[in-house]
Amino acid sequence: MIMQFNEETFREDYTFHNSDWAINRFPFPFHEDSYMYAVNMEQHRGGPEGSIYEKRFDVDEHYVAEMKDRAMVLSDDPLRCQSLPHMTLAGWDLLELIMVSKSEDYPDLFELHRNGDKWHWINKPLGIEDHFTFLDETTLPYGPMEYITRQTQGDFCVLDQRDDNLWMDAGIVTTQADWSLDFDIGMNFFEWHAPVPLAHEKGIFVRALKFLLNIQQGAPARRLNWTMTVNPLLDTSPENYHKWGVQKTEITPENIGRKQYLRVELQTFFRLPRSNGLVFPIRCYLIAFEDLVKIPKWGRRLHRVIRDLPVELATYKGFIDNRPMMLDYLSEFDDGEPTSDGIWPDRHLE
């Protein structure tokens, strides 16, 4: 298809919106009518045509607007992008991975021409064209990680692997579900996940780490995660929580359909060839409740999942106070009929 990029905002007037195309391909995260943490990993080797799984780095109608929002966040707070000194090589690995993937997967949008270490990159949607020397930082306007991730949707954690652990030693984080890169940078896998309830006791992180340490080059993996956000606010950062937190209290029975968003993260994991690091992109997809319930299966299932979610998870995910109002709204879309297995929609919007 020919990509149309939305004119939209993720702050103040919140003009973000999903087309029917974007709703149909939304990564609904619940494969059954209940939810609990699991090591829900699978291989990231494409997926159904047009789905968000199809390409290595999905580009959608929100691309240009998301990159504008990222630039604003970084201008306000440069600490959202940091790389410890030993991580520069991993940044080049990441730049190569994204440029090669995007130019192969979206040849109409991105071009990469390589002649030895002389590289020529063209990003048509953002109007960027640069010639640079691979592995020479002085030839790019930013460090390699920052350069390419200012042009790629999703947050990026670049992890060093040593001592049988993964270390959050670099990243760009502007669309996060309320965690701080500036605070967590330098932590290992168990430390940065320390605040997550229930999952440690279930052994989730021990098993997940074991899986991730063994990810091989050319064999990426993926999983979905989710939370709730009021308004289509990408930058739900702890840094700005004192500014956006109050928006959670602005939900009413009248506006909940359009102001309450399900926030889904497509998390992928790629081994990096030179550094042996692991890159962990966290791509955020937002959908308003009123759009989500247009898919009957999703409306039914979301009601059941939210209703039965343990209090600890609803609290950690930050919507315990609004849960009763969510259930009042969602129950209207749950007729008690059974739902089919898996995440895919039971009908498509035309």
Partner: peptide, 10 residues
Amino acid sequence: QGVCIDAEDP
């Protein structure tokens, strides 16, 4: 880490 306690109820 210290986090604003009254963000949701100033």
